[in-house]
Simulated scan of single mutants.
Amino acid sequence: MASTGKEISYSDLKSLRENNKDLLLVDVRSKDEVDRGRIPGSIHIPLEDVEKEFSLDAQAFQEKFDVPKPLLDTRDLVFHCQMGRRGGVATDKARNLGFKNAQNYTGGYKEWAEKEGK
């Protein structure tokens, strides 16, 4: 079902959320943006902190975000922003750190909110 491509759609994300309890959805928008609304279950790591936070060891990551740090080969790591651009940058950063299957939800929060009627 999941491709090894870097980008996923709204329907991909919906099915990942329903079928995968290990999915880690990372919102890379600013705190102000997140405070105005977020995709349920996402964790917030601003774009400028992605490299630092994903370089933490597993225990530090777990303590800081209250979720397990993903394994490098996980297919369950998805980034998103408001409209797709910053999510793409974050995905590239994660891939450069070795998370070779990291993906970007290109529709971002904007599309999610529209489709979910928020």
Rank of each mutant, 00 (worst) to 15 (best):
Glu63Ser: 14
Asp73Ala: 07
Gly108Gln: 04
Lys110His: 09
Lys118Pro: 00
Glu111Ala: 03
Lys69Asp: 03
Leu71Arg: 15
Asp12Val: 01
Leu23Pro: 00
Leu71Asp: 14
Asp92Phe: 02
Lys6Trp: 05
Arg29Cys: 02
Cys81Glu: 06
Ser55Cys: 02
Leu47Ala: 02
Glu7Ala: 07
Gly84Leu: 06
Glu7Arg: 14
Met1Arg: 14
Lys110Gly: 01
Glu63Phe: 04
Gly37Ile: 06
His44Asp: 09
Ala58Ile: 10
Pro40Tyr: 04
Asn19Met: 11
Asp73Thr: 12
Val67Gln: 08
Lys52Leu: 11
Val26Glu: 08
Met1Ile: 13
Lys69His: 04
Phe65Leu: 04
His44Lys: 11
Glu18Phe: 01
Glu53Val: 12
Tyr10Trp: 14
Asp49Leu: 12
Lys14Gln: 15
Val50Arg: 06
Phe54Asp: 03
Thr4Phe: 08
Ala90Val: 07
Leu97Tyr: 09
Asp27Thr: 09
Asp32Lys: 15
Val34Tyr: 13
Lys21Pro: 12
Asn20Trp: 03
Ala58Phe: 10
Trp112Pro: 01
Arg95Gly: 03
Phe61Pro: 02
Ser30Met: 11
Tyr10Ser: 04
Asn96Lys: 15
Gly87Lys: 08
Asn20Ala: 01
Lys118Val: 10
Ile39Asn: 02
Asp22Ser: 14
Lys118Cys: 01
Asn96Gln: 15
Tyr109Ile: 01
Leu77Trp: 08
Ser9Phe: 04
Lys21His: 11
Glu63Thr: 14
Leu13Asp: 02
Val34Gly: 00
Ser3Asn: 10
His44Ile: 10
Lys14Met: 11
Trp112Val: 03
Leu71Cys: 01
Arg85Glu: 10
Glu111Phe: 02
Asp12Met: 00
Leu47Arg: 14
Phe65Ile: 09
Asn19Ser: 14
Ala94Arg: 08
Pro68His: 07
Ser9Ala: 03
Arg95Asn: 07
Asp76Phe: 00
Lys118Asp: 11
Arg38Asp: 08
Leu56Tyr: 11
Gln103Thr: 08
Val50Ile: 15
Phe99Ser: 03
Leu71Ile: 09
Leu72Thr: 06
Arg17His: 02
Lys93Ala: 11
Asn96Glu: 15
